[in-house]
Design a protein around this nucleic acid. Structure first.
Length: 232
DNA sequence: CCCTGATTCGC
DNA sequence: GCGAATCAGG
C-alpha cells in the first residue's frame, strides 16, 4: 500500500481525533503501526502525548537505538548541558469540555432551613428567537462554548451489543469463534485470548481442530460453528 | 505480558 | 520517503 492523498487525509483526521497509531493502521489497512507513526511524523503531525516522553532532559544521553557505532563512541555532543529546568509541559487540553459551569450556588440568602446543597439544580436559561441561549445579566457564562471545530467522521464505535465481541473488536489475538448466527442482533465472537498461533482460544481450537481418527471410527459430529445449520 | 509513541537508519 | 527494528514508559 502507498500513501495516497486520500489515505494521508484519513491518517491526519484520525491522528488528530486522537486515535492510536495501531487503530489508525488497522483502519487504513495495509500498513503497520510503525508506518503510521513514521508517516505522521514526516507529515509533521507530531506532538500527542507520548507515554515515553514524560521527561525531556537527557537530550542525547541514551537511546542510540540501533547501530551503536562500535568504532568511536566518544563522539559526544555535550551541548545543552543545562541543569535541566524542566520546560513547561506541552499544553494538553485533554478532551471532553463537558460540565464546565459551576453552579453559582446562591450563598448568602440561605439561612434557617436545611437542605444546604440544592446544587444539582439546573440553571434556567431562555432561548431567544434564533435558537441562541439567552443569559441573565449576572451570568458570566461565555456565550460561545468551546464549539469544537471537530470534523465529523463516521462513528466507528458502532452501537454494538454490550460486552459482546463484535467484528470490529477482532484482532490477531482474539478468539474469532462465532457465537450465534450472523445477521442476528446478538451475533458476536468468542473474544477470549487466542491459543497462540491459532485464530481461536484453546477451547475452540479443540473444536476446530480434531485429531485424525482411525478409519471406521465414527463418532457423533461435533457441533458446527454458528450453532449448526439453521432450523426453519 | 500487553500497550503506547519516538527514533534511527537501511533501503 | 518509507517502515522495521528498537527503545522506553505505562
Amino acid at each position: 500500500m502507498s500513501w495516497t492523498d486520500e489515505r494521508i487525509d484519513q491518517l491526519k483526521a484520525m491522528w488528530e481525533r486522537g486515535l492510536t497509531a495501531s487503530q489508525i493502521a488497522e483502519e487504513l489497512g495495509g500498513v503497520s503501526r510503525n508506518a503510521v507513526i513514521g508517516k505522521a511524523h514526516r507529515l509533521g503531525l507530531q506532538s500527542r502525548p507520548s507515554p515515553v516522553k514524560a521527561n525531556e532532559a537527557p537530550k542525547r544521553a541514551a537511546a542510540p537505538a540501533r547501530k551503536p557505532t562500535p568504532a568511536a563512541p566518544e563522539a559526544e555532543t555535550p551541548r545543552a548541558a543545562a541543569p535541566v529546568s524542566a520546560p513547561p509541559p506541552p499544553p494538553r487540553p485533554a478532551a471532553a469540555p463537558a460540565a464546565p459551569a459551576a453552579p453559582p450556588a446562591a450563598p448568602a440568602a440561605d439561612a434557617a432551613s436545611d437542605a444546604p446543597t440544592p446544587a444539582p439544580q439546573p440553571r434556567i436559561i431562555s432561548v431567544g428567537p434564533g435558537g441562541f441561549l439567552r443569559q441573565g445579566p449576572g451570568d458570566q457564562q461565555a456565550p460561545i462554548p468551546p464549539a469544537p471545530p471537530r470534523r465529523l467522521v463516521p462513528a466507528k464505535p458502532s452501537p454494538e451489543i454490550a460486552d459482546k465481541t463484535s467484528l470490529l473488536d477482532l484482532t490477531e489475538r482474539i478468539c474469532k469463534w462465532p457465537m450465534g448466527h450472523p445477521g442476528e442482533p446478538d451475533f458476536h465472537f468468542c473474544g477470549e485470548a487466542v491459543n497462540p498461533g491459532f485464530p481461536y482460544c484453546v477451547e475452540h481450537c479443540g473444536r476446530a481442530y480434531q485429531a485424525q481418527l482411525p478409519r471406521g471410527t465414527r463418532r457423533p459430529p461435533p457441533p458446527m460453528p454458528f450453532g449448526g445449520p439453521r432450523v426453519r
